[in-house]
Design a protein around this nucleic acid. Sequence first.
RNA 1: GCCCCCGUAGCUCAGUGGAUAGAGCGUCGGCCUCCGGAGCCGAAAGCACAGGUUCGAGUCCUGUCGGGGGUACCA
Length: 566
Amino acid sequence: MLIDTLQELFTQAIAAAQAKGDLHAFDVPPVEVAHPKQEGHGDYSTNVALIAASAIRQATGDKVNPRQLAQAILDNLPAADLIGAAELAGPGFINIRLSDRWLQSQVLTVLQASAHFGDIAIGQDQRWQVEYVSANPTGPIHYGGARNAALGDGLANVLEAAGYTVQREFYVNDAGNQFGYFIESLYARYAELLGQSVPFPENGYPGEYLIDYARQVIDEYGDKFLHMDKAAALAELREIARKLVVVMLRAELDRIGVQFDNWYSEQTLYDNGLVEQALSHLDARGELVRRDGAVWFQASKYPKNDKDEVVVRSNGIPTYFASDIAYHYDKFLVRKFDRVVNVWGVDHQGHVPRMAAMMQAFGLDPDRLVILMYDLVKLVRDGVEVKLSKRAGNLLTISDVVDEVGADALRFNLLTRSPESVIEFDLDLAVAQTNENPVYYVQYSHARICSILARAVKAGFDVEHDGEHDATLLSLLEHPSELALLRKMLELEEQVLLAVEKLSPHNLPHYAIDLAKTFNAFYRDCRVVDAAAPELSRARLMLSQAARIVLARVLRLMGVSAPESM
RNA sequence: GCCCCCGUAGCUCAGUGGAUAGAGCGUCGGCCUCCGGAGCCGAAAGCACAGGUUCGAGUCCUGUCGGGGGUACCA
């Protein structure tokens, strides 16, 4: 990676300067290389001299001038192709400008890497799991779940680009009360359709979609459940309903391009004895206690937990937390993931401390479990918040919103905001502004490149293979807009790294807009296909092709399509 | 009450302890003999408040004020 290379060069420079006695002996701090906000300050800059100066002052009490340190480092900077200029600036910054020749050569790097450009190899041999959405399996998914999906899927994509082996998992809560009410509701609808009146369960789901589910049950099983004991019927319906719902969930998530590797049933935790196993494991470690007829996990032994948590109620029924304990016992001690990310809505924030406590109770490093918390999506229509609920049956689903604004716009918009921000989503505005939406701006740029390339092929240019033969032409790419485009393209790796470090891919859409903008500036300033200048055209076509690759990659990482025409 | 998150341009939001804080939408003013005008160029406009740490704070710490969420033997 470019940044790594620069960091390495400066680390070497410091060591060399110290060896020669140009520089004080001190423990070299990690060199940070960043983009200066201001363009005149170069492509990259490092504050290592400023950091070192304060480190030296604190260690020895000697006052040293950061500018002198910076100069000593600069004097010992190894020669490197990629550095065009490195100079001292301000209070002791070192600003680096990439060399034009090296930038030009990167067109080939992109063309060769193709769809893999942007990959960074930092996650080898690491198995990660991202568990996301995990909506209650009781009907269509609330629109807010799309934020979870966009975030989790984007994160999984970025982790894969970083070299991690990633499993995408959906946890199906098919064992708790909610699912029980759902089954009873289904039974009531089923009976109703067959002409029998069954009282609708008090906590049931009145949504009309349940009538469709009931109809499907009738289509496949007829009226057999009416002739059975109700408890037996409910037991059988449980399995049938679970399959039905998972098919529906899968289809709905597929509409926004989200697919899972694994659908993990909560019920199997009980069926396979994992709940019992996990709890006795904790018990053996002295983490459980009996009190008031219930079994408690002694969470309060751990930081940020002020109370214990019930795992088995006094009526003998395990709590949801017991499932969670077993589930994570399975993730870490059975399936042995190196790291697990759970994507949770902020309404579950109260569960976070006990999860960390649970990890420690298992003797596991709590950092191996990351809870990625995102804030809720507020739906607004005509400036008024729309209150919807699945239980009341007036749910606004992912499908509903996809119908209105499209999957690409939805994913792009939801991903743009940082997870901890509350999204206020105005439905009318989302529809009205469809054509002004940034996602179309980015996609349009991609389509425009495709159009240019197609035109070039028609004009007789060998767009596909030029890069294999005529790398020397790249030195013709001297226009500031051409070089600016190259610089922006090369940022993709840093963007992937940033998303992985922050465990949030919300920087990607911002980068995509930036990249599209930079391409549009190039398009404005540089005519690509020009019969009067065939060599320059070939060089610019290579650059355009490379830009297309990068744009398509960042769109794919976000789970957004890269259309060839619009 | 206690815990968590958020207060950045008119609106929706980015912003890695660095140098002169950005984008989209909106507003105002420009640009089509030329590869896709779903485009391009320009202008106005901002870090809630008060302390502190630091060579340097939108960013870290404390407090105040505002907004949201959480505080069950529900999930």
